[in-house]
Design a protein around this nucleic acid. Structure first.
Length: 639
RNA sequence: GCCCACGUAGCUCAGUGGUGGAGCACUUCCUUGGUAAGGAAGAGGCCGCCGGUUCAAUCCCGGCCGUGGGCUCCA
């Protein structure tokens, strides 16, 4: 029989030859590296015998599928270890995930750090035993019987729900698990792993079902990769915006004030202001009008908007003089009222209302996280009201806006479109038209995108922008959403060229999203070392001795006149000490001033990245850094 | 909201059923030193909050609040 490989070459083999033997015949290294194989499009174990001519692709740790198979096998090894140590454990599911795997288990006692170490030791034994993974196909009935006898009620529940007549199970020695497979040939493959932490997880992700224990681990084909991954985790910890936020005196969240409520200290408030100033400027350039809505609006209005029915449990309410008010969780309602305040003509459209709107949402206590998930935050929110004909160009305008802003902050990004979910409102034509408009806008801009079927908002489809930070993590910030519901509910109209009344389409969009969250992402992206234009302190003047204080004051004055943010450290401390502190504060430029500089009108420049840069004249320094001290210019584009 | 862990000085963290500690930071004094920590002294704590056990609780138990890792939900 003829076996064909991805490079187009082929070889002949006897029927019954296993994939492992095929790999071996090609080369020792391939055989060693191959974890499983893809045969005519489906994934198979290396021990699978081939019985007919096929297309074969061997999967290694360099293939996405190979990585998943490897991690999946890792989770089986962990499950086997758990089962050896806790015979009464019931297993739920154990899939591979990004960078690792987990297994959900049901166990009366709870697993702690020391237990994880014990489980790791047991896993080491299982790995050393090199137990082969063997596949077995059972009928559903046999499968149910097998797992009922084992007391594995979760597996039984899963088998009852699958539609096939057969189920496959994998054995590794005394351990058996229901599993689609494939797996690596034996447990010896999984030697570079580490169990990371435990967590609670609902059975089948349903908060009404039982809470299980989830054990998280990571595994790699090579010890080096494991080490690199653990170092990456360490790097992420160092960049944690909660830690840096405190160290750099940017913000705090105090128990006294309330969970999820951010207090911006001078430096954090300054960075936020710089971002917001840039946002205002860029919005004005793009034809947005700034508006401001009140923090409290009457409950009747929230009933009209649908928030009372759909969002009430996330809102804060209060009563004043017998009238019920709700604290705004979104900015749209006031914008609707502005639109309705006069009769609109098609000539007025599009209308782009922009608000740096501070909103409050009663998030569940367990989800709060630094600046990334809070209860009070400020969005760079806008609602664009336009005609159906204008939809495409408005969406493209937003996309370009996002593109420009991501460039300013040095972020890469990808875009995704989310389509109609099952629970949704509006006509099929509206949804189709709006989804098409979003896709066409991205196509027209030459942007590739992924589609998330059924992931849209209940009132319309959306584009999400997922940005990628300096260490490869993804964050969702910008979003563009079509909304049919609000124009309908508020009976928004415009008079068309035909003299008839028409309903405008509304786009809801944010560029950075929550400014608070964006700041958190920025802190982690730059590891606290903001680019000069965003740094709270741009230049720090450090004196060698008291004798230089007067000169230092004149230098500071000159730089302030230039608009630079300057701080002086005139303390009676050694220069090494002052430099150390300025470095920890991540100030981009340090000017070291002693007798030599005072005598010659120069500054000894030191920067955050390159260290000592020698002596330059004060005026040369100003020229050198001037352009870096304000936000990068965004070229003006004709709409 | 749910599961697990944690909560000691501004920060990082030791610690014990009977009197609370260190380093850094802070204050004062000495030192005037040229590219990542000079020296000395001092001040600083409802040991998260409430209740229980105990002759005695920061420590043991319970509840609450908060934080962390996740789940669910989301900007």
């Amino acid at each position: 029989m003829k076996i064909t490989f991805p490079d187009g070459s082929s070889r002949d083999y006897e029927a019954g030859t296993t994939l492992a033997q095929v790999a071996e015949s090609i080369g020792r290294n391939l055989a060693k590296a191959s974890l499983a194989a893809e045969v005519d499009g489906s994934l198979k174990d290396m021990s699978t015998p081939l019985d007919q001519a096929s297309q074969v692709r061997f999967l290694t740790f360099n293939d996405e599928e190979g990585v998943d198979i490897f991690r999946h096998s890792s989770s089986h090894v962990m499950a086997q270890a758990v089962k050896r140590l806790y015979p009464n454990v019931k297993l739920a599911i154990g899939p591979p995930i990004q960078d690792g795997f987990y297994y959900d288990i049901d166990l009366p006692e709870s697993i702690n750090e020391e237990d994880l170490k014990r489980i790791e030791k047991e896993m080491d034994r299982i790995v050393a035993e090199k137990i082969p993974f063997t596949r077995e196909v059972l009928s559903r009935k046999e499968g149910i019987k097998l797992f009922e006898e084992l007391g594995e009620e979760y597996k039984v529940e899963l088998i009852r729900e699958i539609e096939d007549d057969t189920v496959s199970v994998y054995r590794q020695g005394d351990f058996v698990d229901m599993c689609r497979g494939p797996h690596v040939p034996d447990t010896g493959y999984v030697k570079s792993f580490k169990l990371l932490h435990t967590a609670g997880a609902y059975w089948r992700g349903d908060e009404h079902k039982k809470m299980l224990q989830r054990l998280y681990g990571t595994s790699w084909v090579d010890k080096k990769d494991l080490k690199a991954y653990l170092e990456r985790l360490e790097e992420a910890r160092k960049r944690d915006h909660r830690k840096l936020g405190r160290e750099l005196e940017l913000f705090s969240i105090e128990e006294e004030a309330g969970p999820g409520l951010v207090i911006y200290h001078p430096k954090g408030a300054l960075v936020r202001t710089l971002i917001e100033d840039l946002e205002k400027k860029e919005h004005f350039r793009r034809g947005y009008q700034i508006v401001m809505g009140p923090q409290l609006l009457k409950v009747d209005l929230w009933k009209k908007s649908g928030h009372w029915d759909h969002y009430r449990e996330n809102m804060y309410f209060t009563e004043v003089e017998g009238a019920q008010y709700g604290l705004k969780p979104m900015n749209c309602v006031a914008h609707m009222l502005i639109y309705k305040s006069s009769i609109r003509s098609y000539r007025d459209l599009p209308l782009r209302y922009f608000e740096l709107g501070t909103v409050h949402r009663h998030e569940k206590s367990g989800v709060l996280h630094g600046l990334l998930r809070v209860r009070g935050f400020t969005q760079d929110d806008a609602h664009i009201l336009c005609t159906p004909e204008q939809l495409n160009s408005e969406i493209r305008g937003v996309i370009n806006f996002v593109r420009d802003m991501m460039g300013v902050f040095d972020f890469e990004y990808v875009m995704e479109i989310s389509t109609r979910p099952e629970k949704s409102i509006g006509s099929e034509e509206d949804w189709e038209r709006a989804t098409k408009a979003l896709m066409e806008a991205l196509d027209d801009e030459g942007i590739s995108y992924k589609i998330n079927e059924g992931d849209g908002a209940f009132y319309g489809p959306k584009i999400d922008v997922i940005l990628k930070d300096a260490i490869g993590r993804m964050w969702q910030c910008a979003t563009v959403q079509c909304d049919f519901a609000l124009p309908e509910r508020f009976e928004l109209e415009f008079v068309g060229a035909d003299g008839e009344r028409h309903r405008p389409i509304m786009l809801h969009r944010v560029i950075l999203g929550s400014i608070d969250r964006f700041l958190g992402v920025l802190i982690e992206h730059f590891a606290g070392a903001f680019p000069a234009w965003l740094s709270p302190v741009q230049v720090k003047i450090l004196t060698i001795t008291d004798r230089s204080a007067t000169y230092a004051r004149s230098v500071a004055g000159r730089l302030r006149k230039e608009g630079f943010r300057v701080e002086s450290d005139l303390r009676n401390e050694k220069i090494g000490y002052k430099i150390r502190e300025a470095r920890l504060e991540k100030v981009p430029y340090m000017l070291i001033l002693g007798d030599q500089e005072a005598d010659t009108g120069t500054v000894a420049l030191r920067d955050r990245e390159d260290g000592d840069r020698g002596t330059v004249s004060l005026e040369d320094f100003v020229e050198l850094v001037r352009d870096l001290m304000s936000p990068p210019a965004i070229p003006y584009k004709e709409e």
